[in-house]
Each structure stands twice: as structure tokens, then as C-alpha cells.
Amino acid sequence: MGERLDPTRAPASREFDLPGVRGGMGPTAPRTQVDADFLLATLDWIESDTSAPRTVEVAAERVGMSPFHFHRRFAELMGETFGAYVRRTRLAHAASLICRSSTSIIEASLRSGYASQAAFTRAFARQFAMAPNRLRARAQAEAPKPGRLHVDLVEQAAPVRQGALPLIGMRFHGPMSQIPFHWQRFAEALQAAGLPLEAMTAVGILYDDPGFTAPGQIRYDCTVVDTHTTFPPLRAPLRRLSTREATFVRLNVDGPYHLIPEAVFGVCALWLPRNRRALGEAPAYEMYRAPPWSANGRFQVSLLVPCTP
């Protein structure tokens, strides 16, 4: 991929397509739109700290359900059990840390909630059919080479500190190609709830690396900055949440949505190693400079990719 890429053309996949990378699927993929209050509260709790213990008993107590009923409903809606979901998402995060940056394997295990590297290695091998060091070596050998497009995208990238922002959002699951359609559905939900679209600032939240997550399981939040603090309590599928305060690599992306994953790839392949940084713990944020629900195929985004300070 050393040639100049056409930014109007859909890019080649950034996935490594390694054996086991797409493993761990439950009996069904989760629903495209998450519309149960107990499930939204649980997902936010799981994602608030990727290294903290998360048990089905505590999860059920937090939402006022019995463990048996909670376990059954979670599996029904998410296509996998609570424990499998927590394990899969954390191991996919660890794989991204290991393969997309210089994060050590022991650090990736700790940041994924494993106190023992041996336990982490066993769980990782079950998920990806190979040990972490083997996956890293294979990923490095088979990773696509950055092209002119990626050099151009990260040319003005710079580290920034972003504070927490209160948000109103909606959770979706599905391939990244569906994200422009998610924004249309989110705008309709805002209007149905009586929240005006005028002058709202949109923020997209991308939690998963598509190289290590099945397309139907990629988690994405469509949100707007919450300036309606006196609005009555929201009901599913809408909820209140916030961004994480963290350090990010910031760069502007203007054009078709597929340029956003290209920009993330450019940050991981070029900016992080050049600046001796690793991926951070927060999700990636898309700070929209123009409403994405009226983008007509071209998006104006300030992209924030998490990195270590």
C-alpha cells in the first residue's frame, strides 16, 4: 500500500484476518440497537473500567434483577453470556494494545483485568488460537504498509488533553460501514424525545478495533453534548453518559466516513511509534464539526485517538 490512495474510494480492510481473531461469537450477534435500560446501564458499567472486576452477581444487583434472570436476559439480547462478553471485549482490547502499539504483554494483561500473566495468556490463546507474542509477531508481519493517504492524514496530528463531557447517546452494534445510518436513526430518536437537533454538537464513540472484533459486534455510541440538564430522565434507547478525561492524538478528517478508520490506522502505524506513545484506555472519539445526520456522505470530524501521556 505504498501507492497514493484515492480518498473517494473505499479502502482495503485494515483487518489482519488471523485465525481466531473473529472467534468468540455467541449463538447470535447482538441486536443492532440496544434498547433495554438494564442492558445500557450494564454496558456503561463494564466499559467504565477495563481493569476492574465485573461479576454477574454485582451486575444483576446494580439493576435490581436476580442473577438467574439477568444472566438469561443478557444472553438473549447480546448473543453471548455476561462472562463471555466481558472476557471477549477485554481480550480484544488487549490484542489491540499488543498489536497496534508497543504496549508490553504484561501491561496489556493488567489493563485487561488479569492479575496473572499466565491466566491472561491462557485466556488469550483460547480466544485467538495463539499466544499474545505470536499474535503480535504475526500481526507485525502481515500488517498493511501505511500509504501516502495515512501520511497526509496524520501530518497535523498532535497530542491534546480532553476533559469529560456530559452526553446524551444511543448504543449501536454493527459494521463500521453502517455508522452513517446509525446517525440517521439517532437523529430520529432525539426528535421523538423532544430534543431539538439545532445547534447540537455530535460526538461518536468507537469502542472496538475491527481487526479483533466481528463486524456485528462492533460497539458504537451516537451522542450529542448534553445541554439539557433539566430535561426529564431519559428512557432507552437514549441515556446519559460522558466522555472520559484522557490524553488523545487529535487530527481532522474531512470526507467519506471510511477515512476515519484510515486515520486511526495512520495514528497507530505512524504517529504512536514516532512519538514513543502507546494506545490509551479511553475509546476513540469523533467530535463532529458539522451534524453527521445531514452529512450527505461527507463528514467533518476532529478525531481523538487515545494515547498514553
Results as ranks from 00 to 15, higher is better:
residue 180 P to F: 08
residue 8 T to I: 12
residue 285 Y to M: 00
residue 129 A to C: 12
residue 21 V to Y: 15
residue 2 G to T: 13
residue 226 D to A: 05
residue 245 E to V: 11
residue 220 Y to G: 05
residue 200 M to H: 13
residue 102 S to F: 08
residue 87 R to D: 11
residue 40 L to P: 00
residue 202 A to Y: 04
residue 188 E to C: 11
residue 199 A to P: 13
residue 300 Q to H: 12
residue 247 T to V: 14
residue 217 Q to V: 15
residue 120 F to H: 02
residue 207 Y to R: 09
residue 167 L to N: 01
residue 215 P to M: 01
residue 175 P to T: 06
residue 233 P to M: 11
residue 1 M to T: 14
residue 276 R to E: 12
residue 90 R to L: 00
residue 103 T to Q: 11
residue 147 G to E: 00
residue 24 G to H: 06
residue 94 A to G: 03
residue 62 R to Y: 03
residue 11 P to K: 08
residue 42 T to Q: 07
residue 34 V to S: 04
residue 308 T to L: 11
residue 226 D to H: 03
residue 274 R to C: 13
residue 60 A to T: 03
residue 274 R to Y: 07
residue 280 G to T: 03
residue 77 L to A: 08
residue 92 A to L: 00
residue 206 L to R: 14
residue 14 R to Q: 14
residue 94 A to W: 04
residue 231 F to R: 08
residue 202 A to W: 01
residue 246 A to S: 13
residue 102 S to W: 03
residue 97 L to M: 02
residue 287 M to I: 13
residue 78 M to H: 06
residue 231 F to K: 14
residue 159 P to N: 02
residue 51 S to R: 08
residue 27 P to A: 15
residue 13 S to Y: 07
residue 5 L to E: 14
residue 190 L to I: 06
residue 287 M to K: 04
residue 248 F to W: 10
residue 214 A to W: 07
residue 111 R to Y: 10
residue 169 G to Q: 00
residue 237 P to K: 02
residue 222 C to L: 09
residue 301 V to P: 07
residue 16 F to A: 14
